[in-house]
């Protein structure tokens, strides 16, 4: 055994695996006649492969099936991404989020711009107040103020508020959320369809 070189051993194993090209295999076999150690080694290798292949199958003494509780505990964050709890409500949640964001930013816009609108539209508001019923005493009291503001020399155009993009951003964010949720749900349905 000690006379067999490492390279010869590799060749013998390649031949045992039927991975040696035909010409090299024939050349190696031709050496078997003059080098009996080589022939013995090949015979032993082939025998060893057969022995390993014929080893009896090992079977577990118990079933390795997983119970429902183990599976539930084993579900990690990847599982949550695939099947989030309450996943069927995601589109509805997306729409609700869209409305919430739009309302939130929309209200903020109204609160900030309301006084400006009052001042700027003084000239318009005055006739409206004049048309109001006579019992609206506070409205009558406010009329001179609005008239004074209207008389101010500040240019009307300069006091107009910047048109805010926030409501638009809110609606866009909500839409993106809705579409994302819908796509997520569609992917889940696709997996389920494939399973069926």
């Amino acid at each position: 055994m000690s006379t067999i070189s490492h390279s010869d051993m590799s060749l013998l194993q390649a031949m045992a695996d039927n991975e040696l090209p035909a010409d090299q295999s024939a050349a190696l076999r031709a050496r078997f006649g003059t080098e009996p150690m080589l022939a013995d080694a090949f015979s032993e290798l082939a025998m060893m492969r057969e022995l390993l292949h014929d080893m009896p199958a090992a079977r577990p003494a118990r079933s390795l099936r997983l119970d429902a509780q183990t599976m539930q505990q084993a579900r990690g964050w990847r599982w949550w991404l695939i099947s989030p709890p309450g996943g069927q409500f995601l589109p509805a949640l997306g729409v609700a989020a869209c409305l919430c964001v739009a309302l939130l930013f929309g209200r903020g816009y109204d609160q900030v711009s309301a006084p400006d609108q009052l001042h700027l539209k003084g000239s318009v508001a005055a006739p409206m107040l004049a048309d109001a019923p006579a019992e609206a005493a506070p409205a009558d009291a406010a009329a001179p103020d609005t008239a004074r503001v209207a008389d101010a020399s500040v240019p009307l155009v300069a006091q107009q508020p910047e048109p805010s993009m926030l409501p638009l951003l809110g609606v866009t964010a909500g839409l993106v959320g809705t579409v994302g949720s819908a796509r997520w749900l569609m992917r889940l349905r696709k997996i389920q369809r494939k399973a069926v």
């Binding site: 390795l64 997983l66 599976m71 084993a74 579900r75 990690g76 990847r78 599982w79 991404l81 695939i82």
Partner: peptide, 12 residues
């Protein structure tokens, strides 16, 4: 058994 549990956890 542990390997099957791990496989289930990482199945996605």
């Amino acid at each position: 058994q542990d390997a099957f549990i791990s496989a289930y956890r990482h199945l996605p």
